[in-house]
Design a protein around this nucleic acid. Sequence first.
DNA 1: GGACGCTGTCATCTT
DNA 2: ATAAGATGACAGCGT
Length: 697
Amino acid sequence: MPVDSPRSSVFTFQSAVHSDHVLRCLDEQRRRDVLCDVTVVVDSRSFRAHRSVLASCSDYFSARFSSHGEAGAVISLPDEVTAEGFEPLLQFAYTTKLLFTKENILEIRNSATVLGFKNLDNSCFEFLIPKFFDNTKNATNTPRKQCCLRKKSPKPENETFASTTDSDADTNKATSHVALDEEEQQVETTSKLLDPPQQSYDDACPDMDTQTDYSLLCKYRKFQMACMEASGPEMVSMSDDGFPLSCVPCTSRDDTKDLEEPTSSKYVPVTEGCDFLTSGSSKPPLSLGTKASCCGEISGLSCGESVGPKKVKIEDEAEEIAEAGDGVGIVSEDEEKVVLGESHTASDSRADHRPGDPESTRQLGSERSTIEQEVAEHLAKGFWSEPCPSTTKPSTVPPNWLKQLDLGINTQDCPFLRDLGAIGARVPDCEEPSQGALGSPYVSSQNSGEDSDSLDTEGDSEFYGSERACELPFSVERIASLSRNDFQQMLKLQCLTREQLDFVHDVRRRSKNRIAARRCRKRKLDCIHNLECEIEKLRTEKDKLTSERDRLNRQRQKTWLSISGLYERVCSEAALRPEQLQVLAKYSPSACPLFALLSPLSSTSAQPEAPLEAQDPVPACSLGLFQAGSCGEPSSRFAMECGSGEGQATPRGLAVQCPPPASTYSGKGFACSTEGTGLSAFTTMRPEPVSKLITDK
DNA sequence: GGACGCTGTCATCTT
DNA sequence: ATAAGATGACAGCGT
């Protein structure tokens, strides 16, 4: 039931080639070193570039340029960035194409992470790397998951990301970093100035090694808390990722399948210019690259998997991309080549689609997202609902949604439905309109006809009864994507009935909730993934510490044996009586190598009953006493007082029974320390003379 | 046919 | 007070 509300059409012209042209010119300028205003030095190699381009692509450069102003004509990148990793990124910045090989993808990924390369974040690598490397076998060889590296990615301190909330920031601030290994500490230092770019579900993508960003996950409070409890503050500090166009880190069935069948797709370097791929297989081409997704879901799709069940995923991806604003895509041309490229929207889709090919259109339609369908519907209705008389349903449109659309138009006469497959890559309203056919501009109408939410959802279908009569002059996407103010303003501009208003609000509510649910689920998955990552990391750390402890124990035993030998020797030569040794120990200055003086005793009365090996390897404190004693710290008096009575006057026994000094973990191993508890305790317990000596010192 | 995972939706709570 | 977002619970659907 059409509503006789005034309808005004707004048309948008958008050049499909302008952005490409600009980028090409910039790339050309870069190659000719024209107008380049910065030199980037990596690994002693220099790259000329434009600041604006670098800053546009990289959070790191953005921060550097903004903080250094015009000062830095030459920029040296952090050590984490290698020329091998940076060069492809630079090329990507100017061409939207990332050329990589199995050999350098890790370098690229690491560089991209450190530099906070937008649109190329982890999800892409997250999908690809596991395919390159056996994730299970080489878990330790592949770069640490993003949750552990995220901090390495610089981000301007004041930069905000959609996914970064205040609470996130607070959490990060509150996070205390435990000692990391040197590398991490180094990076961490850098990161303090330049926080990692956090691509959120709305603007980013994780990685499979998904370096999912914990700061992003901070929204997921309960999980975050659980994470923090489970792994301590370090965890948060070490995690990161945004959900850069967040691709779910291979958590879907399809991803799993991909991982399980790594040979299903081959990834080899692709020649430049191999931009968008046409399906090399016999199956109809999929214009998946259009909505550019870095996720394995879509790329997996293009790699030969059954596409039928993917419909929802495509939609999902499309919406996420829509939210993200800029997509990252793995455009698989065939199973032999892989290129990462930014979305170029509809044009690509159109290129793949075979207009007029019913089979192609049918399959495309069945795979196409509901949003795309809606867009097509709106576009179609916007132009044709009035002029087109109700006729038979076109055969080129999937019947399942023709039923819902019930457009009552002849799609053969309607270019939008006729070429429905080409519209799939449309960018949501929140962005600029997508590009039209290849090389040609297209005209879109924001004046759409009947509104509809996701056509494939159960709840929505209810609306296609009475509510379908609510012909709204804007799209569902628009309803959902507009800000509150814009939304209200748009409603004010329209003369809508109460029914329509309710419908619109309901559509908006459900649409947003749908997206929120996706985010929520993604966060859960990311949290799980991060926890797994952290577990793995902690296991590695534990192994490392265990081996370090064993090494130190061996070293301590060795030292003990060595000193014992000296003991024996000195004691036998001095032949002092125990009483003499006690007196001597009591009043000896701390600088005096007391043990050497006391050692004669050990040779006579302090022979350990059990072999040294059988004892608890020389207690830490004993070595500490030796060391400290040699430099004048503890006195024998203290050593004797500490004794529990078994070894009383025997130097070795005293040493063995002395309470171990406080041990602290320095991150590199255990170290005995008399700091704090040590020296102060000595000072307190020592007889006056010795105490005074220490104090004087 | 049941288990399982994914997704959308609703209700409720928090921000 | 309201809107938006987060999240648990539920149901439908496909595998």
